[in-house]
Structure formats: C-alpha cells, structure tokens
Design a protein around this nucleic acid. Structure first.
Lengths: 313, 313
DNA sequence: CACACATCATAAGTTTTGATGATGAGTCTT
DNA sequence: AAGACTCATCATCAAAACTTATGATGTGTG
C-alpha cells in the first residue's frame, strides 16, 4: 500500500504562499507567476498527498485541519530557502584577499577601517577582505576558516578559537540640549525614570544596565528598543532619550548633535579577537593581529588585553 | 552589480548530497539519478553563486570553506523536506471518520482498542479514526482540530485544550524467575543495584525513579535505555533486568514470561485527556469522552479523574 | 608498464515540470 | 443582471531535469 510520492519543492512553495495569503490569486502575485500555474501546482500536490488541503467553499479556499498541520512543517523549509539565499549573498560579498578580517558591526564603521588603512599603507600590493557581521556569524566564519581574524562579542559558541579578550567601557549618549548634561558622571539615581533607548533584552549590556538600575533602586524607563548600537544613536540624535553605547559608536561625536558622559557603575562589553585553532596564522595575519592588539590596548579598559581561554556562556 | 540568482531547490539538494557522501557518484546513487545529472546540477549551482564550492584535486571534490558555511544553512532546508514527507504519510494514515481519537503509544495497544470496540458495538454505522502517536504530536493534532479527542502525557505544550487529568500508578515488571519475585512490594532499597531497563532520561517517570532511588540512598543500575514502554517489556521478557512500566503495557501479563509488583514510593504518570477549546465536541465525541472518563476512573489512582486547567511544565 | 577501475566533466537527446493565456463556472456586491 | 471577484481546466510552449554515451584524468595492481 506504500506508494511513491514525489513532493516537489515548488508545490510546497505554492502551498505555503496560498496559506499565507489566503487566496490563490494573491499567492500567484506573491510568487510572480500566473494564477492558473499556481492552481495547477496545488492540484498536483493534493493529488499526490491524497487528501484535501482546502475545502472549496463558495468559490474560496478554506484550509483543512490537515493543511494547517502540514503548513507548520512546510514553513521551515520555505523560510529556510531565504536563509540560504542570504548566506549566498553574504559569501558573494567576500572577496578573495590575502588577509580576511571580520568584525562585529559596532566596531566596523570607524575604528576597523581606520586601522586596516594604516596597516595596508606599508603594504600596497596586498589585498584585504574586510566584512562586518553579527557576532555569531563571525564566529562561524572564523571557525570554518573563511576569515582569519574576527572581532566579536561574547559569548563564544564554539571552542575552536584562539581568544584574545578585551573590555570596552560603555558611556551614556545624550542629546546636546538634555538637562542631564550638567553632570560629569551619570548614575542610575540621576537617570531614574529618564527615557532610555536600549538594545534588545537579549543583549549583555542591556541586562547589566537593568541590573545596575535594580541595585540602585532606580527605574529604567525603556522607551525604545532596537538591536544595533548604530540605530540607538539615531534615536538619541532625535532627542528621544539617552542610550548606553560603546565608544566606537560615539566616535561621531563631532557631528555636534549629541554628547556623552561616563556611567557609574561601569558597564563593560566583553569582546574578543578570535583566530582559528585549526589553521595557523599567516604572516600578514600575525602582523595585523599584533597591530590590532597593541592598538586595542590603548582604547580598552586597563590590563584587559591578554591571552585567555574561551569561556562559554 | 546585484544580479539575479535563482537558487533551485534541486541544486541545493544535490549540493547537500555531495557534501554528505563525499563524491558525486555516491550522491547520485543516494538521490536515485545518474552521475552526469548531478554533475550538471552542481555546475549550475556553482555558476549561479559565482564562487567555487569544491576544489577539484586529483579528480576528487574537496569542499571549500564557503561550501562548509553554506552546508549548514542548506542542511536545515533539505532535512526539512524529509520532515514534510513524514508529516504527509502521518496524515495519509488518518482515515476520515465521524469520530477521531488519538492516543499515546503505551495506551494504544490493549486498552484503547478495547474501549473503542465496546463503544462502537452499539453504533454499527459509525466510522471511527484511531491513531497512536507521540504525546507532542497528539497535542498538535487535537489543537488543530484534526482529532477530536486525545490521550497523552504531560507536559502540555499549548493552552488550547480542555483538560481531564488522571494518574496512572506504575509497577515494576520482572522476569518470572527473578529472585525478587518473593517480595510483594518493591522499594529502592530492595532494588539496589538491580539491572534496570529504563526510558530515556528525558522521560518523566525516569526522573522520578532516579529521584526515588537517590532519596533512599540506593543505586539505580540502568542497564538498557529505550524510549517506548513496549520496548522495555521486550527486554524484561528476555530476562535482562526489571523495568518500571505503566499498567497498560502490563496487560499482557498473561503470556507468562514476566510478572509485576507495586513499587513504593508510588510513581505516577501524569496523563490527560484533551479536547480542543476552539471547537465544541460532537455528540459522539461527548459520548465517547464520557465513557472514557468513566472507565479511566476505574483504573486510575483514586480521586484523580477530574476537570482541571492545563498546567505547563 | 599496461590494464582495470575509479573519479568528474561534457555533449546531445528525451522526458518531466512549470508557466502562460484563453476560457468557463461559481459567488458576492451593487 | 452586470461587474468584480473567486478558482479550475485546457492546449500549448519553454525551461529544467534527467538520460545515455563519451572523454579526460587519476589510482591502484599484477
């Protein structure tokens, strides 16, 4: 009684679009094909699975319970294809250079390009690949040998890295005309109930900020949530509140639309420079890593640039 | 510079198979197509993504770092298709009946069929769908309206159910010639270091069993792990050890190759009969539910068949 | 060294699948 | 009853997927 069925991806994609949009016509538009084409795909699929996926009620399609169960599985597959496409464009953007460096977004706009430029000045014929990404992606890339050197935040997800840890002290960014600019150092007490622009709740610094406020018995008034330091700054510029930022994002202070103050108690960002344990560093890689660590020593919190083992969590 | 790329699923499937098997020839066999066909798909994919996925070294394919990064994304998608196929066959096995009942495996061999037979005796022209599945799948099916009545174990994963809780007391099954058959009730002290056949460590009863042994300062000697009560029984029959089982599995006691004893402290299985909050029970559904709850009252631990709210975890 | 047997790539030809546009039937609105 | 929707069906055609046949290259063996 077992019979061959050949679920084709196109059919699942069609099915997915129909459930999502509610009608065949709209689904066809979403996929950029004609309505009869989609009708066919659906008919094929229903013939092959041998149960109804939709009740035809008064000319409309109403998903059966079976369809809803199936949809959950199909969802994973169809959405997954988007992820693959994204991965492909990420990989396409990587040029083949002699030295590959990836760093987390917040450090990628001002600091890293400047350092790389300085490094490349003495080496005119060397090609360097530099890319900005999320911390987890950077770790994946360095682990797989796609990039030689990565700069990202903790936590580390694998154990495949040589790790150089350093810590960056965060500061509070405020609009120029903010009343609290009169203080030299800001504390939770001073900032009690002040509108705050914060990172998503899963980010380290957010949790530490919240803890600092709780400790001081102050209220953290989280007005806007965002997920890139760079975005927070935009809101600060617009005067919507204050934000806790890393000094790299604050480099643009010169634009004169916001300023910054230290925060007490200090909140540090746990950052790391990683290289792959699996393959040894190239000569240029070594040279750049030395420059990077040396330079970070000037910015980072004292005594925090050192060799260290990866600590997960 | 952005150019159109049309990642076809078949190409990803090909890529996935090649990475998995290591050679094109083997991958072709796995997918059931010819080697040149696969070679073509790979060539297409490499042309479209515009970076090498494999180095051709001495006639063999060696994945590039890019390929390994891509593989992780592709993996999700391709494996997902298998899940969809599995879901489809699950759904195909469901017949269209007026009354749909699903129950967890352990209760599905003896008890439920017998009860359903009794119920159907008075109603000769009624079609009933009955299916045995894992607890989580049963919940999904009842939640989506695919089945009217489900019998499964806690924990409940949604809040979409009307819940009737009951508790089943487990017993220790032993081979007939086991020395411990001389006891009327078995305790952790008596069973200290006795070879045990146990459920996987994620199952409730396993954790409680372990706790009971720890409390008594006895050693739980887990000799075999399995994941279906029915399987445990097979090992007991073979004399490999004793096992903690629900009374439904023990119904076959008549076969004379094992026996059972109560265990102290009592270990109960948290079970529930669920129906969907979303749609009201049909008349037959109501009737069967009444019969089921009434009958469970005779088997279950006293005072434990009652209406209750779902409690998660 | 020559032979058998792997590997992957290419070419040409066939079958299957996907999509189109025209058409029709049903439902709801106005 | 017209018009704007829905979805299904048909004939048709192009693109994709697969086939067989063949060649180039590499490896291991007597």
């Amino acid at each position: 009684m077992m019979c061959e069925m050949s679920l084709r991806f196109r059919q699942l994609q069609a099915f997915h679009a129909i459930i999502e949009t509610g009608t065949v016509t709209a689904a066809a538009a979403q996929l950029g094909i004609s309505q009869p084409g989609l009708s066919n795909l659906l008919a094929q699929l229903e013939r092959e699975v041998r149960f109804r996926l939709f009740e035809r009620q008064r000319g409309r399609l109403v998903p059966t319970p079976e369809a809803e169960v199936l949809y959950r599985e199909v969802e994973t597959v169809v959405r997954g294809l988007d992820h693959v496409a994204q991965a492909v464009t990420d990989l396409q953007n990587k040029q083949a250079g002699q030295l590959q460096i990836a760093s987390q977004h917040s450090i990628s706009f001002g600091y890293m390009p400047r350092l790389i430029a300085r490094f490349a000045a003495d080496r005119p014929d060397m090609a360097i690949t530099f890319q900005s990404q999320y911390s987890s992606k950077i770790q994946e890339w360095v682990a797989s040998g796609l990039f030689e050197i990565g700069v990202c935040e903790r936590p580390l997800l694998h154990d495949a890295f040589n790790v150089h840890a350093f810590h960056i002290e965060t500061r509070i960014a405020l609009p120029l005309d903010h009343p609290l600019t009169v203080y030299d150092v800001l504390t939770p007490e001073i900032l009690d109930n002040t509108p705050f622009i914060v990172m998503g709740p899963d980010h380290m610094t957010h949790r530490r900020l919240r803890a600092a406020f709780a400790e001081a018995g102050a209220t953290l008034n989280a007005r806007v949530h965002s997920h890139l330091f760079r975005n927070l700054l935009g809101f600060v510029r617009e005067g919507m509140g204050v934000a806790l930022l890393d000094p790299f994002a604050l480099e643009e202070e010169g634009d004169g639309r916001f300023t910054s103050r230290p925060f007490a108690p200090r909140i540090l960002m746990d950052m790391v420079v990683i290289t792959s344990k699996a393959r040894p560093l190239s000569t240029v890689g070594r040279a750049f890593l030395d420059l990077l660590l040396d330079d970070l020593g000037k910015i980072a919190v004292k005594d925090s640039v050192r060799q260290a083992n990866p600590s997960n969590a």
